[in-house]
Design a protein around this nucleic acid. Structure first.
Lengths: 342, 342
DNA sequence: AAATAGTACCGAAAAGTTTCGATTTGCATA
DNA sequence: TATGCAAATCGAAACTTTTCGGTACTATTT
């Protein structure tokens, strides 16, 4: 390719059959390039190994920074994942820029935000359990900024890597554990219905029941928020049913802890009268009384994995999978036992 | 100046009697411009009010960055403070760079680290509950980077602003609350003896006792770690004493939650047989059963305040105080009651 | 003093980016 | 069907930045 001179934009442009500005726009992630054209130009760029001067400078530049977007910090879940991210970050020599969406949802102006990201030499982004539309993701993708989404609320789009755990299998394990103890009336306290992982957990629960030939009862399945007070509320509803369920599978530890707290208040003894299984494996689950049996997600590992994936993408590797699922592990503690009256 | 067209480099260049590249170099701080020439060009630039496109973008986009150093993320305490910092950060339009010291202590090379901080345009630093020697702090101070320390483990040095809560008064309130209920044998489960806030809380406890003319018993005062398992361990020790204390003041909520959990295991009923007061006001304290009476630090407010102080210092203000203490508030919940046998 | 080397400074030319108008296309409307 | 309108796409031209070589000046050597 190189005939004496340095590799230049116009050479790439000529080969791609477009003008110099168009190539520049592709490199800088402008929107006014047809997808078709962009692809062709990118191919030539790839092949020729062209690097724009700014790209080049950036690759020499100081410590890479990864931006981490969280929805809120008040759950143990987020903190734990963040801790994992920090692990990998210090190990990998990158820094972490934390940004919180708060209640306002994500990024007022994704295009501008993405541009700022690359301007300031940020090399990737991790989104933790937030709804993230396709439009903003595209803004990052066009600029070649790798994005990893952890436990996305909405189904992740094509071009983004998502990291999570084996939600379906985990809920199935939890339910199977209760079935093995002899429970037959098992309730499920889910998360918001629209949320991806929530659905997977529900289906794991249903699958376990079905495999034992047990029909799921609608009134035992209550969707709600991933919050302890909403767990407490729903337990009150469950206790009004006749016959009562003898066990509860909660879609998160926060829900399960709410159930345990409310059970104590209602004089329902756990696990003698009611077994409870949580999901997530946050720290508080170990410390509750009785200690919570739960499906532990390797939250720290998930955080670590997310950052490693970013780093690999920055290094030019193509991720071998759009979805990474880490195995959950059922941790049996004190909140589950054989059903009452047996 | 503007004769119909937009203000452009070449106009400035013409007026200054130099070429366009030279003006560009002045703007971009290149070295190959004579001091004399630079001055002249700068004058014209000033006069004409020219802003280069990148300057313009930057003024729209550049967001100041504050570095936050935490020791670890696995306590609710840190997460809560961080949430407060994020509050102020989003409100104040700054970004937060998170860095974790982990177990390895702080900054391998403070001098270098401080330099990098200013190079990358970071405008301040917040240190959350970490030991932080004077040497690194000085490195920042010399470079004019404001540093705020939240609840420092060691006594903060002269040149740094520290933010905390009224530890002494808070512990005194907690103890007074128990005294008012009629308790006379009150134990104190402290943090590590060397830690500043831990000492203040101990002295608040002692002061409350003294004000009622009660002598502190050494065997009722146990130092230890800010961890729930260490709280549980120390409760076991307390229960062996004769006479047993009827109430416990814990120097942190984590300790207190450990006490509650262990009490449940040991069949000691709270608050009927033992009253417990915590300190911090983390989220889990609300959700425990029984709900924990605690001295709530305004953790979020502390985080918010820390960042605001940084921002004011960046704005050129001189902090009016080296030490900011936010008031604690005794939150009476279910874990305290009159002593048994009355 | 002359030659040489080194360096600071500048601008022509090359490279890259942005603006803006021209062209096309899709789609709703007359 | 014709017409208008808005959005998408692209490149020419305008603009900015960078590279690179030349000039002039100074210091050093011969």
């Amino acid at each position: 390719m190189q005939n004496g001179r340095r590799l230049t934009l116009s050479a790439v442009a000529r080969q791609a059959g477009v003008s110099v500005p168009t190539v520049s726009k592709v490199i800088n992630g402008r929107t006014d390039v047809a997808a078709e054209t962009r692809k062709r130009v990118l191919a030539i760029l790839e092949e020729s190994g062209y690097r724009s001067p700014v790209q080049h400078r950036r690759s020499l530049a100081a410590v890479p920074v990864v931006e981490v977007v969280v929805d809120s910090l008040n759950s143990g879940y987020t903190a734990e994942v963040l801790a994992g991210i920090m692990d990998s970050a210090t190990a990998g020599g990158v820094e972490v820029l934390l940004s919180s969406t708060g209640s306002r949802g994500v990024a007022p102006n994704p295009e501008q935000r993405a541009q700022r990201l690359v301007d300031q030499g940020r090399c990737g982004m991790i989104v933790v359990t937030s709804a993230f539309g396709d439009a903003p993701l595209d803004a990052f993708h066009r600029r070649g900024v790798p994005v990893v989404v952890i436990d996305p609320l909405n189904p992740p789009s094509e071009e983004v890597v998502s990291v999570g755990c084996t939600d379906w299998a985990g809920a199935k394990d939890a339910t199977a554990h209760l079935l093995a103890l002899g429970h037959r009336r098992i309730a499920f306290l889910g998360g918001p219905e629209a949320v991806e992982c929530s659905q997977a957990r529900l289906h794991g629960y249903l699958a376990a029941l079905r495999s034992q030939g047990i029909a799921a009862e609608d009134r035992y399945v209550l969707a709600g928020e991933f919050r302890s007070d909403d767990g407490a509320r729903r337990l009150r509803d469950l206790l009004l049913l006749d016959p009562r369920p003898t066990a509860v599978v909660a879609a998160s530890d926060t829900i399960a802890l709410g159930v345990i707290a409310e059970a104590l208040r209602q004089q329902v003894r756990i696990p003698q009268q009611l077994s409870v299984v949580g999901f997530d494996g946050i720290r508080q689950a170990e410390e509750s009384v009785p200690a919570l049996t739960t499906v532990a997600q390797p939250l720290r590992d998930i955080g670590r994995a997310a950052l490693r994936i970013i780093l690999r993408q920055v290094g030019g590797e193509v991720p071998d999978s759009r979805r990474v699922e880490l195995a959950t592990k059922l941790v049996v503690r004190e909140s589950t036992a054989v059903p009452p009256g047996e």
